[in-house]
């Protein structure tokens, strides 16, 4: 394959005496679906938070298109085209679905009202949100104006996924996007991930769901004890291999203990 789109080398992040990342490496290639798997507390969320600007690593470097980047905030990563669905979803519970979809990138009315008085183009934002949610099959939601806190857990997750998919232009990172979803809704998200990939945008998918991972991932990054243990090809390894590597029950060929 060609040059990686997003690279991390030797990332370290400590929280007091806990080392969440301990020399983590990472590579994402253009157009691929990369799954990241690992035990609870292995440091997966911390790794992707470093890539999305939410956490500043203590050591190590991150490269986008081969050029070093240093994101001071999620906004900077977003402006570079990296869109993330966090495990905590990062939605404002009291605000509406449409407000949440456009949080931080609100549309203004054309003309004087928008330009001088900053008036929001509510209608356009509603239509867009409605359309994106329909694409995800989430139109059991009655009202795009309803506060996010009145949605079910799965619906909330759907809103967060729809937001990332709608705005991500370079990389989309999904931290357990189907954890709260029903069978049918999970299927929609998997379809959406493949849709996004067919638009040429690579995806990082963190998941504990092995069948999902083996179904759609091109490569699987196995995280263990704060760093990358290995990357495997799902067509050359079985799910039980992957679980064994993840939990430390066995080591893949070519990796020293």
């Amino acid at each position: 394959m060609n040059q990686p789109l997003l690279t991390a080398r030797g990332l370290v992040k400590r929280y007091g005496r806990v080392t969440a990342m301990d020399g983590a490496d990472f590579e994402l290639y253009p157009g691929e679906i990369l799954a990241v798997i690992g035990d609870n507390g292995a440091g997966k969320s911390t790794l992707i938070k470093a890539l999305s600007g939410a956490v500043r690593p203590d050591e190590g470097e991150i490269l986008l298109d081969g050029k070093p980047v240093s994101f001071g905030s999620p906004l900077e990563a977003r402006q570079a085209g990296i869109e993330t669905v966090y495990q905590t979803l990062a939605l404002s519970p009291a605000l509406s679905i449409a407000d949440n979809m456009f949080m931080g990138r609100e549309l203004r009315r054309p003309g004087i009202m928008g330009k001088w008085f900053g008036m929001l183009d509510t209608a356009a934002m509603h239509d867009f949100s409605r359309q994106k949610l329909s694409e995800l099959g989430l139109m059991t939601i009655q009202n795009i104006n309803q506060p996010v806190e009145t949605l079910s857990g799965g619906q909330r997750q759907g809103v967060a996924v729809a937001r990332a998919a709608a705005f991500g232009s370079r990389v989309i990172i999904l931290d357990e996007p189907t954890a709260a979803l029903g069978v049918k809704e999970s299927r929609r998200v998997l379809d959406l991930i493949q849709d996004v990939r067919s638009r040429g945008i690579p995806i990082v998918l963190i998941s504990h769901n092995m069948p999902h991972v083996f179904e759609i991932a091109d490569r699987i990054h196995i995280h263990r004890l704060g760093r990358r243990l290995c990357v495997i090809n799902p067509r050359e390894h079985s799910m039980s291999d992957a679980v064994a590597y993840m939990t430390g029950a066995s080591l893949p060929a070519g990796v020293a203990a």
Partner: peptide, 10 residues
Amino acid sequence: DDPEAAALAG
């Protein structure tokens, strides 16, 4: 509402 969520949302 939720400053951490707002920050993550950019």
